[in-house]
């Protein structure tokens, strides 16, 4: 299997990259870590006229804290995130999710920006972006804009990024100190794509829940925020009955499709089971 012919650009600055991208009128693809795009090229499922490789744009790889957010450059490798003390402290859910992203030799190349822009519905980072109500920064010829998670994912592998825009930064609000969190996922083998995954965040005050967040992976064409299930916890607290009710609600809130890996019914079932597991574990580690 060999990729089809393409023109190759390896800019060293974002401006050069945007310039190169703009020349192809939507016919070029941005190459980040390549862990999804390269297989598509090898299979010739993608046949872009050109690749704009961001791997030499050093200014797109960073993790820093600003205005209550952790801001990650789009080209920050998943392996860097896995070992980042700042991520461990401020975004423990992101650290936990990273363990589930592919395998070690995938994470050394794979990037947070690439994973989110690729928008695979079974991927972990889009679910984390949804759960934490994060946003991304996109740069294009007309300037820069900030896109909220809820406005980014449109359907399978499709975002609201314009063809001449590059996702440059991912912004995630720092999690409240003591927040409980968990990402539970079911796949046939560790490292495979999730059949269903659930990201959970819980802020507790004793048995009361002051904030709950639940988001799905693999349970529909885009990550789904399970708002009505969150509300059950926020009104009824963190007891077992509330967890069970939230898990039941989760199965009603998702609208999964069937594929060769799992039926829609099975995915719906998993959404409930994993919601219960994720909440139980998140509540267990929550302080407050």
């Amino acid at each position: 299997m060999k990729p089809p012919k393409f023109e190759y650009h390896a800019p060293t600055s974002l401006d050069e990259a945007l310039d190169a991208l703009g020349r192809y009128g939507g016919d070029a693809k941005v190459l980040a870590g390549g862990q999804s795009l390269m297989p598509l090229l090898n299979f010739r499922l993608a046949r872009p006229a050109a690749l704009v490789d961001l791997n030499r744009v050093a200014s797109l790889a960073y993790i820093r804290e600003q205005d209550g957010q952790v801001r990650l450059g789009a080209m920050t490798r998943q392996r860097t995130i896995e070992f980042s003390p700042l991520v461990a402290q401020r975004l423990p859910l992101l650290k936990e999710a990273t363990r589930w992203v592919g395998h070690l030799p995938i994470r050394t190349r794979g990037t947070i920006g690439g994973s989110i822009a690729h928008a695979d519905p079974s991927a972990e980072y889009p679910a984390v972006l949804a759960a934490l109500e994060g946003e991304v920064v996109a740069r294009g010829a007309r300037g820069e804009r900030v896109i909220r998670a809820a406005d980014l994912f449109q359907t399978y592998l499709t975002t609201s990024l314009a063809p001449d825009e590059i996702l440059t930064e991912v912004r995630l609000p720092a999690m409240p100190a003591g927040a409980g969190y968990a990402l539970e996922e079911f796949s046939r083998r560790h490292g495979d794509f999730a059949i269903v995954g659930i990201a959970a965040v819980v802020v507790r005050a004793g048995q009361r829940c002051t904030m709950a967040r639940l988001a799905t992976a693999g349970a529909g064409p885009v990550p789904v925020r399970l708002r009505a299930a969150e509300e059950i916890l926020e009104t009824e607290g963190l007891g077992e009955a509330a967890i069970d009710a939230a898990a039941r609600r989760a199965t009603e809130l998702v609208d999964p499709d069937a594929d060769i890996h799992a039926s829609a019914d099975y995915r719906r079932h998993l959404a409930g089971v994993l919601t219960k597991r994720a909440l139980t574990r998140a509540i267990g580690v929550a302080r407050g």
Binding site: Y8, A10, G34, Q35, M38, P39, N42, D53, N55, R79, L104, P105, I106, T108, R109
Partner: peptide
């Protein structure tokens, strides 16, 4: 899988020109 700048990576989903 090879080591690319010291880290394990899959050389079938990288381009040779990226190894410059």
């Amino acid at each position: 899988t090879i080591l690319f700048n010291g880290e394990a990576a899959r050389s079938c989903i990288m381009l040779a020109v990226q190894a410059e």
